[in-house]
């Protein structure tokens, strides 16, 4: 087992860590790499910042009550529903 990750490998493991829990060995290797590598530490923080920002953007749109279906859009949907009934 290779203990030292390259930055390329570390970046791939960091991305995977956003989706699935890492294996014990990947976690250890990554921890070790991040201790020594500012660039990958920054990369790790960047991905997490993107993830939390995306979540925030989603909440803002969901809660922005000024975002509404236009009158035209409602009319279109109504029409689709009615024609579907015929």
């Amino acid at each position: 087992m290779k203990l030292m990750l390259s930055c390329k490998q570390a970046s791939q493991i960091i991305s995977q860590s956003l989706d699935n829990p890492l294996s014990w060995s990947d976690r250890m290797k990554l921890k070790f790499h991040l201790l020594m590598c500012d660039a990958c530490t920054n990369f790790n923080r960047q991905l997490r910042l993107i993830k939390s920002s995306i979540r925030r953007m989603r909440h803002e749109t969901e809660n922005d009550t000024s975002v509404q279906l236009t009158v035209d859009a409602k009319a279109r949907i109504n029409q689709a529903i009615n024609s579907n009934h015929l």
Binding site: M57, R58, H59, T61, E62, N63, D64, T65, V67, Q68, L69, A73, K74, R76, I77, A80, I81, N84
Partner: peptide, 27 residues
């Protein structure tokens, strides 16, 4: 309708697609 539209827009980011999604949902 407006609630569903916001929910869809937050995930699809495209007003036309979000409108389609609401329409499909009601149908």
């Amino acid at each position: 309708g407006d609630y569903l539209y916001r929910f869809a827009l937050a995930r699809l980011r495209d007003p036309h697609q979000a409108e389609d999604a609401v329409q499909e949902t009601l149908l």
